[in-house]
C-alpha cells in the first residue's frame, strides 16, 4: 500500500502534474484537485492489490497486428481549410503566443 503523503508532497505533486498538462491552476484549484487526485490514486492502489503476475497487459482490445496504409496518397487539406478553426493565423501559418527556443 502507498504510504500516506504529507499535504506538502501532495501539493507539489499536483503542481507538477498540472505543469505537465499545461494547466494554470490557482491555489484554490490546487487544493481541490489535490484531494481528487488522492482519491484516484487510492482507487488505483485498490486495483493494484489484485495479483496480476503472469498476466499479459492489454494495450488494445482488438487483437490485430500489422495494419498498414494502403499506399495511396490522399488529397491534403488546403491551407484555408486547415486554418479555418485557428484562433489566430497569418499568411499560411498558425500563430501561437511567442515560444522562444529555450
Amino acid at each position: 500500500m502507498r504510504q500516506p503523503k504529507s499535504d506538502l508532497q501532495n501539493s507539489q505533486n499536483i503542481e507538477h502534474v498540472a505543469k505537465l498538462a499545461n494547466l494554470p491552476l490557482s491555489n484554490a484549484e490546487l487544493a481541490i484537485y489535490s484531494e481528487q487526485l488522492d482519491k484516484i490514486i487510492d482507487y488505483i492502489n485498490q486495483l493494484n492489490q489484485v495479483d496480476t503476475k503472469g498476466v499479459e497487459p492489454t494495450f488494445s482490445v482488438r487483437e490485430i497486428t500489422n495494419v498498414f496504409q494502403t499506399g495511396e496518397q490522399n488529397q491534403s487539406l488546403t491551407a484555408t481549410e486547415a486554418l479555418q478553426n485557428a484562433p489566430v493565423h497569418k499568411d499560411n501559418f498558425f500563430v501561437t503566443k511567442g515560444i522562444f527556443e529555450d
Binding site: Q69, G71, N74, S76, L77, A79, N92, F94
Partner: peptide
Amino acid sequence: TKNKMFCNCSTDYFGQPANTHICPVCL
C-alpha cells in the same frame, strides 16, 4: 518515403507553401 508516417499526406513538402501538406491526422 512517399507518404507520411501515420497518414496518406505526401512528404514532398520541401519548398512548398506552409500548411499545404496536412490532414486531420498530422494536424
